[in-house]
């Protein structure tokens, strides 16, 4: 049995690649047919998928379409948008600059970049 964390990952991967909103049943079927190395979807109950979806909803990653039965779920932002958010935080260019993640190199100015290019060309 895969852990909740791994399931969250698999569910998000499915939602990110899905063109439209999916029901918990759809997701369960697609997880069960996944030929991934960890066989995350084997013997998966729909209630487990619903638990995972509600956790993801609480984290603000997934939203439920209103007024449909059964509920249909979709990803709030694309994978690329989330990655860009992480990278902005990591580079200290996010509006909220308080993550204080020590990073290898922050953003550099254009002038600095030009100097560095010369340095690299030289040696």
């Amino acid at each position: 049995m895969a852990s909740l964390g791994e399931l969250e990952r698999s569910v998000m991967d499915l939602l990110w690649s899905a063109p439209e909103a999916s029901t918990a049943n759809d997701l369960r079927d697609r997880l069960a047919s996944n030929e991934g190395p960890d066989h995350a979807g084997k013997d998966l109950a729909v209630t487990t998928v619903l638990t995972v979806l509600s956790r993801l909803e609480k984290k603000g990653l997934v939203e439920r379409e209103r007024g449909t039965r059964p509920h249909r779920y979709r990803a709030v932002s694309t994978r690329e948008e989330h990655t860009a958010t992480l990278m902005h935080e990591a580079l200290g260019t996010a509006p909220d600059r308080e993550a204080v993640l020590a990073r290898f190199i922050g953003a550099v100015s254009d002038a600095e970049a030009a100097t560095l290019r010369r340095l690299l060309a030289r040696g």
């Binding site: 994978r79 990655t83 953003a107 550099v108 100015s109 254009d110 560095l116 290019r117």
Partner: peptide, 24 residues
């Protein structure tokens, strides 16, 4: 790394899923 992140900021936004501003 410094030059690479500066170059990345010069590419058109959205071309590769989120470019990064390179100026301080």
């Amino acid at each position: 790394v410094a030059v690479g992140s500066a170059d990345d900021g010069e590419r058109p936004p959205g071309a590769h899923g989120g470019s990064l501003p390179a100026t301080m």
